[in-house]
């Protein structure tokens, strides 16, 4: 399993198939923004995102979307606030902001959001 730092440093991509995103690390999600939907409810009863945790990766199903690549332009990102597995979720310094860009061949580029990307936690 990769750490988030390894993923960003080594530019390891995630995957996207339809409304499913696979992230090559494990984390607790706090906030996800896709288009203008702000999702903070990750409980099983939520209609926003269904989370499935695997040993080596994290599976996200965006239930309101048929195909994410149809909804997002190549300049648009899915943005997330998350805390890596094993780190203290209550320590603000552990809250990481990342942006996911869907590229060709089902690849998902994972970047830490820079100063230019607007993202308020």
């Amino acid at each position: 399993m990769y750490t988030l730092d390894e993923v960003i440093k080594n530019k390891i991509s995630g995957l996207c198939y339809g409304n499913r995103i696979l992230l090559p690390f494990k984390a607790q999600l706090l906030k996800v923004i896709v288009e203008s939907d702000i999702i903070t409810d990750f409980s099983r009863s939520s209609k926003g995102i269904q989370l499935v945790e695997h040993e080596e990766f994290l599976d996200l199903y965006f239930l309101e979307y048929k195909g994410l690549s149809d909804s997002l332009s190549k300049y648009e990102a899915i943005k997330m606030v998350l805390v890596e597995e094993g780190k203290n979720i209550f320590d603000w310094n552990n809250h990481r902001k990342i942006a996911l860009y869907l590229t060709e061949k089902h690849k998902v580029t994972i970047e830490e959001t820079g100063a230019d990307i607007l993202f308020i936690e």
Binding site: L72, S73, Y75, E76, A77, Y101, D116, I117
Partner: peptide
Amino acid sequence: DLEILKANEFDFE
């Protein structure tokens, strides 16, 4: 500029 379009999250929608 590609970086500007990305920063603006440009979309024709």
